[in-house]
Design a binder for these strands. Sequence first.
DNA 1: TTGGCTGCAAATATTTTGCACTGGC
DNA 2: GCCAGTGCAAAATATTTGCAGCCAA
Lengths: 142, 142
Amino acid sequence: MDRYDYLVNRLKELNHRITPQRLAILKILTSSDSHPSAEMIYDQIKAEFPFTSFATVYKTIALIKELGEVLELEFSNDSNRYDGRRPYSHPHLICTSCKKILDPDLDSVNHLQKEIVKETGFTVTNHRLDFFGICPECQKNR
Amino acid sequence: MDRYDYLVNRLKELNHRITPQRLAILKILTSSDSHPSAEMIYDQIKAEFPFTSFATVYKTIALIKELGEVLELEFSNDSNRYDGRRPYSHPHLICTSCKKILDPDLDSVNHLQKEIVKETGFTVTNHRLDFFGICPECQKNR
DNA sequence: TTGGCTGCAAATATTTTGCACTGGC
DNA sequence: GCCAGTGCAAAATATTTGCAGCCAA
C-alpha cells in the first residue's frame, strides 16, 4: 500500500470525511518529493477542481499535520513548504535561486540530537536542518 | 575592542550615520546572548528612548544584516530572532515552551556541510540547525 | 546645509478564522 | 438529515515601504 492510500485510510479510520478536495491535496502531497507550498498545491488543484479554495488547502494541511503525517518547513519570507512523504525530522537541501528543496542522504544527524540531549538537559523532540546553496542546474544557468 | 564597538566602527567606516536609536539597538543585539526578536528589542529600547519606532528597529536590523553582522533566525508563526554576537551558521537549541534560544557547544556540524557538498554538487553557503525541545527549567515547572 | 534617518501610517504577504451553505455518509 | 467540510471574506500577524520632517556630519 502506498502512502496516498495509507493517508486516505487513516482519515477514514478517524472518521474524517473523504472529499474530492482532500483526495486531491493528499495526492499532490504524496505523489512527488517536491515539497510544495500551499500555493503550489492550490495551483495544481485548480486545474482539476477549479472551485477549490485556499482555506481548504490550509485546513487540510492542518488536519494532516495534527495526525503527524506531514512535515511543515516554516519560512518567514517565503511560504511554508510541506513534505507529505517523510513526516519526520530530516535534513533538507534548499536552492536559494530556484527554491527547489531536496532530501539528501545523510544519516549522521540523529547522532547530533543525542549529543545535544546529553550535554544540555533539554528534552529534544525534533530538529530542523537546512542547507542553503545553489543547485547544480542553477550554477550552470548563470 | 568588544563587538559593540566593532559594529559602531563598521557603520562609521561605511559612512552610515550614528544615531542614538542605532546605538541602542546595537547595544541590545550585542550585549546578551538572548537572541531577541524585533519586538523584544523595541520593548527594551522604549524604556530609554520612548519615541523609537518599530520601523527603525527593522531598518537597522536590515542594515546590519546587509553587512553580514547579524544572523536572522526566521520563523513562520513566531517572530524572527536575531543573533548579533555570532553572525555565522551555528546550531540553536529552542525551548518550545518559554521560547528561549541557546547556543549549544557542538562542533560536528561543519563536517556535515562538507559531506553535503561532496554528495550533491550543491554549492552550500550556509546552513541552519535548530533543535526543538523543553529546557530543564520548563521541565520542572509542570 | 543636506540627504540619510526616523516615525507614523499604509501596504504587503501569508496564514487563520467566522460563518452560511453544501454534500459525504 | 445531520453536521463536518467548503468557500468566501474578513481578521490576524509580522514585516516592509512611502513620505514628510528632522538631525548627524
